[in-house]
Structures are given as structure tokens and as C-alpha cells.
Design a protein around this nucleic acid. Sequence first.
DNA 1: TTTGAATAGTTGCACAAACAACTATATGCC
DNA 2: GGCATATAGTTGTTTGTGCAACTATTCAAA
Lengths: 146, 146
Amino acid sequence: MPNNQFKKGELYSFITGKASTAIARRLQKKFNGAGLNITIEQWSVLYHLWKQEGISQQELCNATFRDKPSITRLVDNLEKLNLVKRVPSEHDRRINMIYLTKQAQKLQEDTMALAEETLNEALETVPADKVDTCKEVLQIVYDNLK
Amino acid sequence: MPNNQFKKGELYSFITGKASTAIARRLQKKFNGAGLNITIEQWSVLYHLWKQEGISQQELCNATFRDKPSITRLVDNLEKLNLVKRVPSEHDRRINMIYLTKQAQKLQEDTMALAEETLNEALETVPADKVDTCKEVLQIVYDNLK
DNA sequence: TTTGAATAGTTGCACAAACAACTATATGCC
DNA sequence: GGCATATAGTTGTTTGTGCAACTATTCAAA
């Protein structure tokens, strides 16, 4: 028997991701309110570069679960904002290595604090073990479909 | 103490909604593969109209968690595809009542089957009680932030 | 060594989202 | 009745996404 535990109406939220939409909107408002002039999508690219910079656009595709054109344009816009730089690889001239500017490095602490704040608001009143289960399920969903 | 159970790196998936992105992409591919020429966003509007048609654009905003311009354009595109019709309300001339065409009524069964199929693939190997917990947590997140 | 396939990245197009500014209509209060 | 305010919907702009088609470079096999 299929794993079909979706009464109509519940199915909808799962597919449309209302929860993550709500989280992203809240975080975007916090960014705007703090005068941080970046989008959530741009932040998601910086997020991975803070962990490791000097990676290729293709690696950013894999890390952020986006296709190549999306990353091209996000990097375009991040470059316009003076937050990253494309540096051609010396070993393989097809590749751009993406590096953070000093300005981007300065953003890390503030934006991560706002992200944690947002998640705390989102998960207020949710017991820790349920959050763990939820994370686990979402990870499996991602692995099943990616 | 704040409800801060996010080690770095887990935070990311929660905010960016990788799981629901994966689900939506998979479902879109199924639509395309079946020759159904609609987007997931258009489907999400039809979804609510199948439950009840003749509602206003504002009611569609609330139901789909979108703003008014988004619904205006989704209804524009659904009208171009001959799937819905705007009918001016007689009682309040500001309001458009949105009705389904016969063509849209025919889409319900097929698309809902593909949606269920997608969710079954997504949740393969996930025990039912964990799915329940996950749904519960996501609902609370939504309620906390909406 | 040359040629064909694979890989990295870009560009064009259609669709969607968020925000601000706008029009038209309705409502409530004096 | 007339005016301020609220509500429903539209339009313009910027940003992001997905797909297809494209260029440039690398790699591998004949």
C-alpha cells in the first residue's frame, strides 16, 4: 500500500511549501528592516561561500540546489552589489572561482543572527524532538527526489 | 532559552525549503510529461477553485498565501489558457468572481493523481507517524509566522 | 593528433513573486 | 448628500526560476 497519508487539503501545503515561504518572507523583512540590501536567494549563495569561498559556479549550483542559469544571474547581481568576485581558474579556463569581498564578509554575523532569530520565532512552542523528526523527514524527501 | 536546535547547515534547508522545491519540480515534470500545459502555481489556484469556485481574487490570495498582484497575473494566465473566467460580481462591482471552465474541470482528476503520486515518491520509506509529526510542525511554523 | 563528447558558463524567453503606486468602487461618519 | 477611508483589483519594476540553445574549453578515444 502506498504511503498515502494525505487527506485532501494537507497535500496542498506540502507541495507549495507554505511554511518555508513564510520563513523566507519573515527573514526578508528582517533583512529589509535592518537595512541589509540583499535577497534571501543572494543570502543563500553567500551562506555557502561563508563556509567555503573560491568554489566554482557549478559547485554553487549543487550546494544551493539551483540550475546554472540561476547561479549565473545570482552571481551577476552579487557582483553588482560588490559582494562577490568572479576569478577565472588558472587550471581550467572554463571555470570561475567565486570569492567574497570584505563587504560580504561583514554581512555574515548580522544575517546569521537574523536567520536564527527567524527560526526561533517559527519554531516557538514546538518541542525539540518534533523539530528533529521534521528535519529528518524533510531530508528524506529531498534525498528521495533530488 | 530559545528553541534553537539548528546546527549551522541545517538552518539552511529549513529556510530555503529544499524539500518543497524538490516536490514542486518533480510534480512539474510529471505535468509536462503528461502533456499538461500548466505550472504548479497555476495548479495551486485551480486546486482551491476545485474545492469551491466563484470566489473572489482576494479569497484566492488568502487561500494560496499570495499577494494581489500575483493572483491578478495567475488569473490572467489561467484566462489565456481558457481554464478560468472572471465574472464581475453583481453586488460589488469591485469584485471578480472566478469560475472554472469545462476544460479546467477535466484537469482535476489527472493532476490530483500526479500530485498524490509525487507525494508517495517523496515520502517513500517515511513512517506514517513521522509524516504526521512533520505536517504538524510545518503547520505550527506557518501559523507562527503568517 | 584530430575529432567528438562532456563540462562550465551565458543568454533569451516565459512565468512567477514582492513591493509600490495607481484606479475604481464601497462604506461609514458628519 | 458629501467626504474620508477602506477594499478589490491592476500595472510597472526588479529579482528569481526553469528550460532550451548557445559558446568556450577540456578530455578521451580512434
